[in-house]
Amino acid sequence: MILSPAERAYLYESLVQKPAIRPGARSDHQFRPLEAKTGFLPNSNGSARIRLNDGSECIISVKSKVVVTRGESSLIEVDIDVPGFRDDSNFVSNLKFSLTNLLITKFPVEYLRLTSKYSFKLFIDCIVISHSSYPLSLISLTSYLALKTTRLPLLTSEVNDEEIEEQPTFSDDWDNAKYIHPTFQPPIFITLGVIGENLLFDPSIEEEQVLENGLILSFYKDKVITPIINMNLATNSNNSNFKGLNQKLIIQSINLCNKYCPAIIKALDTLIEQDDENDDTDNHIF
């Protein structure tokens, strides 16, 4: 995306004001409104979809498989597909690295242990149907919904199968299936744009073009955690404003996320509750 010099200058000047005047009049810490739906893929253990007003959309499916714990290097495998980008492109690979890294290091693996020998392995498949701004936080919010609503069949065989040769058996009744863990909150990513002294949550594609830097923070269990990285969010464009960061802004970004991200988690949880309540009455997903 190319902006004209006058557009860039106007946008930059507006965004460095205190407080920043963003094109959609969003406040610094305001996300774009989302439309979300969970549990609509009947063949998946968990599924979720998030759509933005500008048409950006991500669908995630979580499937599980029983594996021998010892034979697996990790119990979570992530795959991301973005139309228009090759699977081995830098863009997709970095999204995949980020999400895999976050989930592998932060996901409480003990929740997936079935017996002393066997575990569930989760396969998280993401499709970014359309996106304008950098889609990592879109993907991660969707993965939050999908993982949080993932249900796994109830184990009926013995937990301790050290001496037993048989494979674990499960309850036939899907209604007995359980969520991964009642209090489980998957970790999420937050993208922040750095411009002047301002930190902008969830920058839009226009804003990304004039940002001085971008930060990606992770948030889990009500506080900011690692990984924390910086990157140029304006992919495929020549961002002439891109420059180094002031260290103070990193500290500030942690404080801001600690302050505002609980609201995001709360909004996501509220949506899941609503989806649970009218499971059958309300079927449209579009």
């Binding site: 890294n101 290091t105 506080k223 900011v224 955690i225 690692t226 990984p227 924390i228 990285i229 910086n230 420059k243 180094g244 960061l245 002031n246 260290q247 990193i250 500290i251 942690i254 404080n255």
Partner: peptide, 14 residues
């Protein structure tokens, strides 16, 4: 000027 940062591992605070 900080041009690159990458923090991994455990819990983090200011």
């Amino acid at each position: 000027q900080l041009v690159g940062i990458w923090v991994e591992g455990g819990d983090i605070d200011q």
